[in-house]
Amino acid sequence: MDTTLLQEQVALGRDENAYKRLFLHFYKGLIRFADTYVRQHEVAEEIVSDVMLKVWTMQEALLDVRNLRVYLFSAVRNGAINYLLKNRNYTTWDIDQVAPDTFVSSHTPEEETIHRELKRNFAEAVSQLPPKCRMVFKLVREDSFSYKEVAAILDISENTVDRHLNIAMHRLADVLQNYRQRSGR
């Protein structure tokens, strides 16, 4: 989807259909991202809705946004952090999420059991990553952001993104190595 064209149609033409398409294009990913911070789905929806409303009200200033995707994720991150600070929920805050659903489903009961065990071990390993490592892993591996985009979203350097991703990948590789040794694969 060419979001740049939709962005122009919203900014200059105030095109409601283009806005709706932009909204629907980004909505689920932004909700999931906000939810990693606030851990309350309704609050995540409210944060994303506020950010998307701001996009509509920006009018021509929306044309100044070079990368709308990075802008939206950054705005949602800021909104989530502001919510946590305002409501003092930051002490119970955990950005853990479910492991990626990219594993191929097996057919035999034994393979299904092995698959569930591996998925559970992988999810546990992801949940045990330091918070920034988890976030970087999810943005790069699950949401396909570039290092530069993740650096802009999280307000860190690209080298820090690389370091966090390397830590995450080494720990997750250990989980796979242990699994292979135990299962004889």
Rank of each mutant, 00 (worst) to 15 (best):
M1W: 01
D2L: 13
L6P: 07
L6W: 14
Q7L: 05
Q9R: 14
D15F: 04
E16I: 14
N17S: 09
A18C: 07
Y19L: 03
Y19D: 04
F26C: 01
F26L: 03
L30A: 01
R32Y: 03
Q40W: 05
Q40M: 09
V43E: 07
E46F: 03
M52W: 01
K54V: 08
T57W: 06
E60I: 06
L62Q: 05
D64V: 03
V70P: 00
L72T: 02
F73L: 07
A75K: 15
N82W: 03
N82Y: 08
N82P: 03
L85Y: 04
K86F: 14
D94N: 15
T102L: 07
H107E: 10
T108G: 09
E110G: 11
E110L: 12
H115F: 03
H115T: 08
K119M: 14
A123V: 09
A123S: 15
A125G: 15
V126G: 00
P131Y: 03
R134P: 04
M135E: 12
K138H: 11
R141T: 10
R141I: 12
A151M: 13
A151S: 12
A152Q: 12
A152E: 13
D155Y: 03
D155S: 09
V161F: 01
L165A: 08
M169F: 00
V175R: 06
Q177K: 14
R185D: 04
